[in-house]
Amino acid sequence: MGQCWYKSVIGGVFMEFNDLKELIELLKESDITELVVEKDGEKIRLRRDKIFAHIDQQAVYHHPVVHQQKQSDAPAAEAEAVSATTITITSPIVGTFYRSASPDSDPFIEVGSRVKKGQTLCIIEAMKLMNEIESEYEGVVTKLLVENGHAVEYGEPLFLIEPA
């Protein structure tokens, strides 16, 4: 997926988001894949499919989560490939991930880059707000986990850093 990121796949009429969230929660807690609600001549259809995962993520988005977490919180597959001290840098927001300030400029970091505290690691854009993500650690970048221009979700792992 490119820069546009869709968090809802709700067909039919527009309604208040709080109401929609309640319906989404209902659907999530059940085994059903489709829910149709009719009210006052209006009809809402909710369907679980591939994109629905983003709605699930949006619900998580409202809960406080530590931005840069230790390896023990990273996906299990990564845990096997990296050392116990490796730090996973995660996204603090939903947005579009950029490795450089502009398409023509060099990436902020590469695998092997030595980073300092306060150094810009990447930019995540949301609504034309360019969020420069600063490193809270000193160390060496060992893995890049997201491609330039891709959408990232809240808490999504972005980089692995081996502390210096």
């Binding site: 546009c4 809802s8 067909g11 527009f14 949301a126």
Partner: peptide, 24 residues
Amino acid sequence: EGLDEDGMLIVRDQIGLLKTIISG
């Protein structure tokens, strides 16, 4: 269609699905 609670743009596409746009 409108903005969500964070100010992101809600678009109803050509088949009636609502999508939230973060950037573009």
